[in-house]
Design a protein around this nucleic acid. Structure first.
Lengths: 180, 180
DNA sequence: GTCTATAGAGCGATAGAC
DNA sequence: GTCTATCGCTCTATAGAC
């Protein structure tokens, strides 16, 4: 039980995911990864050929699970139970790996604090002071609906070019805050 | 009307926002900004003291408008009309400036294509083949609900530590895909 | 207000010893 | 499998001429 052997690769992936989620991929250096593992930067290259390959390994794991969920869904008759189970299985796989791209990289900026404060105030205005958790989540989704509907090529690609999308998004956002 | 004068600062902000939204802040170099403006990199430093200051100017503009929206909302009696108008005004200000952090920086990876394909397939499973735009948007929001509910410190900070949040998110996601 | 030239630092990646 | 040492590159930022 003296020298470590074959778990280093997995430890690298775990620590890299940690840092990518904290800081974003670009702002994370190989030096930070190796430091946290108490190995040298050069040693990383025994396990991975490049920094990109580390990210691809992480994303690939997520992608594989996602593919399995989709395949499962296609082999089932459509219906509420299938759809609910799809959502549940998707939940399982995002808990780990999904927050890499939407990093917290801008929290250092002073203006980011102001924006966050204002967004929270906006949510409070939309829900009222004693909203339930579900109500607050609906308000967040109302905001998300506007982002999806109004920023082209944003977070997730809307597979449509419906010119009515902005209006539809605003209507749906209104429904969400009114609890309908 | 010979030499340009004071509009350079605004042209820098416009081009920088373009590139930040396309590639993300980190992946955009000052060289790319100055090239697109057909000036030199060094000239940028006459108008801004640092790269961060360019981003802060962009975010600051957005933050100022957001603050005004919140102030307006606070000066109004709560009610459906106020809430709807809040959403409408928020829509107006995000169209430009909001997609900087969630950049398209990972589209180059092969595995990203697979993930996108699978997410689209998942959405199709959730909506059925001939869904309306509103239905597709609801499915997107169902996915967003899971992300918000399950990834701590993600896109937007949920101002709650309700341990029931994951379950509530899943329930709300189910409601969204079932059209309730 | 824009230029040329360059400083100074950090990065990803490689070579080769052990 | 991990190390030391270093290469080559790109980046932000500055100095100083025009």
């Amino acid at each position: 039980m003296a020298g470590r052997r074959t778990d280093t690769r997995e430890r690298i992936l775990r620590v890299a995911l940690e840092l990518f989620a904290e800081q974003g991929y670009d702002r994370t250096s190989l030096r930070q990864i190796s430091d946290r593992l108490q190995i040298t930067k050069a040693s990383l290259y025994y396990h991975f050929q490049s920094k990109e390959e580390i990210l691809e390994a992480i994303l690939g794991e997520f992608a594989e699970r996602l593919t399995n969920v989709v395949a499962w869904g296609r082999g089932r008759p459509p219906g509420p139970e299938t759809r609910h189970e799809l959502l549940r299985r998707y939940s399982e796989i995002i808990t780990e790996a999904a927050s890499i791209t939407q990093s917290n990289a801008f929290q250092e900026f002073a203006v980011a604090t102001q924006i966050r404060t204002d967004v929270l105030a906006l949510l409070e205005l939309l829900t009222g002071p004693d909203a339930t958790t579900a109500g607050r989540l609906r308000a967040q989704l109302a905001i998300a609906a506007l982002h999806i509907g109004l920023t082209p090529g944003g977070l997730t690609p809307m597979p449509t070019d419906d010119p009515e999308l902005p209006k539809i998004a605003l209507d749906l956002a209104a429904q969400l805050v009114e609890g309908e």
